[in-house]
Design a binder for these strands. Structure first.
Lengths: 190, 190
DNA sequence: ACCTGAACACCGTTCAAGT
DNA sequence: ACCTGAACACCGTTCAAGT
């Protein structure tokens, strides 16, 4: 049930093109960021630009196909941490994973926030999955009194994406220190 | 002593063009963000594209000319707060000013972090001014024991720019809530 | 069904030619 | 001293024409 928005075509050549585009796009996004040239993707995949657009109607659709798995895995990793008996630490660990993790691909934070606010985007659903997973982790830590009750899931998500933005635009170490700062801010006074 | 990197030309027509480009650029950057089309700026200023490049050799030079005053004013506002006898509150207030303030111009946070790391950028000096002003405010709050001693000026600046990024990409309210979170994280245990 | 690539409306940047 | 605008090498996106 890999139900992405884009359907894998039936004809053999088309299926090959589809797959090839995905592989190449992953590379190119990693190299040039989420705003990479789609023409370049098509070129390196050895197809005409029109073929790329036939398989993926826009940039978000292509990004979604590339990022889907990683996003879902990240969400599942969060849910796995729900069982932890130190939920605040679990949340903080996951924050590090989130901000440094999947698909090193500059420019993603902008896209993620935009997609979260745009229900027509192909990336909307995967981003929602992530935000909701983060919110569950947060809720658990709040129930146990380890995190301030007034922080919302959207607050946390904004902080997460901001940390990732810092990791991309400054460096991972700075993002990590920001996480510590935010982590201290999250903590409920015991 | 308005010593910016770009020199105001002597000839009357050139001086008029220079000034006009600045006025129009401020509008266009506000409308379309820091990555706005320079061609559009030239068009709306009624000059050929080559004229824009003659006055401002690249985008950063034009941005610097547009943002310079606001940045310096923001730095001075920080120094004015150094006298406060509640330095932690002063810092937090200034953080709000910083993240919502000068030249509503999307895409600036990226540019600011990049300029801070690139000494050849025309924006390098103004960004340094801001970071140093923030660092002084921080140092004062730390001396009085109101803020954790292990936070550095660069940490604070990254947090500031990240908040501004959130203000641009989500909304000002979310950025404000992130500021509260970070503010709590800054606070030394009394 | 699917692929191709010309076409359109844009960019940033440079530089010879003009006044 | 300064301005113009063609030129170059790019974009994203669409769509008629082909197989």
């Amino acid at each position: 049930m890999t139900s992405s928005g884009v359907t894998v075509p039936g004809r053999a050549d088309a299926r090959r093109n589809h797959h090839n585009l995905l592989v190449v796009a992953r590379e190119v996004f990693a190299e040039q960021g989420a705003q990479a040239s789609l023409r370049d993707v098509a070129r390196r995949a050895g197809v005409a630009i029109g073929t790329l657009y036939r398989h993926f109607p826009n940039r978000d659709a292509l990004l979604e196909a590339v990022l889907r798995e990683g996003f879902l895995a990240l969400g599942e990793a969060a849910d796995a941490l729900l069982a932890s008996d130190t939920p605040r630490e679990a949340l903080l660990d996951w924050m590090t994973t989130f901000s440094s993790a999947p698909g090193e691909c500059r420019g993603l934070p902008e896209t993620m926030l935009a997609a979260l606010g745009d229900e027509t985007s192909a990336l909307h659903a995967p981003c929602r999955v992530l935000r909701d997973a983060a919110a569950r982790l947060l809720a658990r830590a709040q129930e146990l009194g380890e995190v301030h009750a007034d922080v919302t899931g959207d607050d946390l998500f904004a902080a997460l994406v901001a940390m990732r933005w810092v990791a991309e635009n400054a460096d991972a170490e700075r993002a990590e220190r920001l996480r510590e700062l935010v982590g201290r801010g999250l903590g409920a006074p015991q």
